[in-house]
């Protein structure tokens, strides 16, 4: 595939995102009267638009952008196409952190306590992975370490929820492990967005470092990028954005893995350019997935993670298969 001009690619993705946003806001059990929704404050239409659909859609955009961006950044940092915030256990650790804060009464301490719990969890996961696999560990170590961390932490999450004084433990467990954007409000967006946005800035500022890293760690250093500074920016950026995103959406899988792969040929495989493209594409993909969830004729609304896993799983298998045939 020929890489097209970078700014056209970003403009195209942004336009598609706006289009999808319009479509999503239109969609729902009730057809929206835009006239009323926009200009008659207090009307049912306005309430639905501003308090139900818009927060959910914007949250899908923000969480999707976070996952796509974090996936691209982690793949660049670890120089490993199989890295993704979910595969290496970052999202499950973030979910665990959020669950601990939420169910053991810590969330009431401060408005930012919930995302902070998620961020601490995500930061611990990134550091653990870095220690275990680093950039020398190779794909196998990375994935195995990720599987171990994910399953352990998911079990701990389920355990914590079962121990908590909570009659809805089962449905809560499903929510945290699979992720969903149902019944999210503007408040959820407000507590998580500042941290996600800070994380985005940190991650996007690492583009040149990730480009240089293509040539290996030592070459990057001799190209004028002191290793530790940029690496910390990446780790903190991932922790902030993914931690905050997961604390309001649960653990939504595969977006962070799939999106950078889809975008890579379009940016000529440049890790730096991949960042912004993956953020936009991640937002678009999650927004559409959330639309699909609401369309699906199930009695209870499907969890978002189910859709992303159904789409992402086969894609992951395809990646493994093509990696295998390349190695052969």
């Amino acid at each position: 595939m020929r890489p097209i001009a970078y700014h056209w690619l970003l403009a195209g993705l942004a336009a598609a995102l706006l289009l999808a946003l319009g479509l999503v806001l239109q969609q729902g059990p009730m057809t929206l009267n835009w006239q009323a929704a926009l200009f008659e404050a207090g009307s049912v239409d306005a309430t639905i638009l501003w308090q139900v659909r818009l927060p959910r859609a914007l949250l899908a955009v923000a969480v999707g952008a976070t996952l796509g961006l974090a996936g691209a950044a982690l793949q660049g940092l670890l120089r490993n196409p199989l890295a993704g915030p979910d595969l290496i256990g970052v999202t499950s650790c973030a979910a665990f952190g959020a669950v601990i804060t939420l169910y053991f009464g810590l969330a009431g301490l401060a408005w930012f306590a919930l995302p902070a719990g998620g961020m601490v969890g995500a930061a611990l996961a990134v550091l653990l992975i870095w220690l275990l696999a680093g950039s020398r560990g190779g794909a196998l170590i990375l994935i195995l370490a990720g599987i171990a961390i994910s399953s352990m932490v998911s079990a701990l999450t389920a355990l914590a929820l079962s121990l908590a004084p909570n009659p809805f433990a089962m449905s809560e467990i499903v929510y945290w492990l699979l992720g969903s954007l149902a019944n999210r409000s503007g408040a959820d967006l407000a507590i998580s967005l500042p941290f996600m946005a800070t994380g985005w800035v940190l991650l996007l500022s690492c583009g040149r470092y990730l480009d240089a890293l293509t040539l290996g760690e030592e070459s990057a250093r001799t190209l004028g990028f002191p290793a530790s500074a940029a690496r910390w920016r990446l780790v903190i950026g991932v922790a902030l954005s993914v931690g905050a995103a997961v604390s309001v959406s649960g653990n939504i899988g595969f977006i962070g893995l799939v999106v950078p792969h889809l975008m890579r040929p379009w940016v000529g495989h440049r890790p730096g350019r991949l960042l912004a493209a993956s953020a936009l594409a991640g937002a678009l993909l999650l927004l559409l997935a959330d639309l699909l969830v609401q369309w699906f004729p199930t009695t209870q609304e499907l969890k978002l993670g189910v859709i992303t896993a159904l789409l992402g799983g086969p894609f992951f298998l395809h990646l493994v298969y093509s990696a295998r045939s390349r190695a052969a």
Partner: peptide, 8 residues
């Protein structure tokens, strides 16, 4: 030294 991604 081997580049990590199939950059042009």
């Amino acid at each position: 030294a081997i580049p990590h991604w199939p950059l042009p």
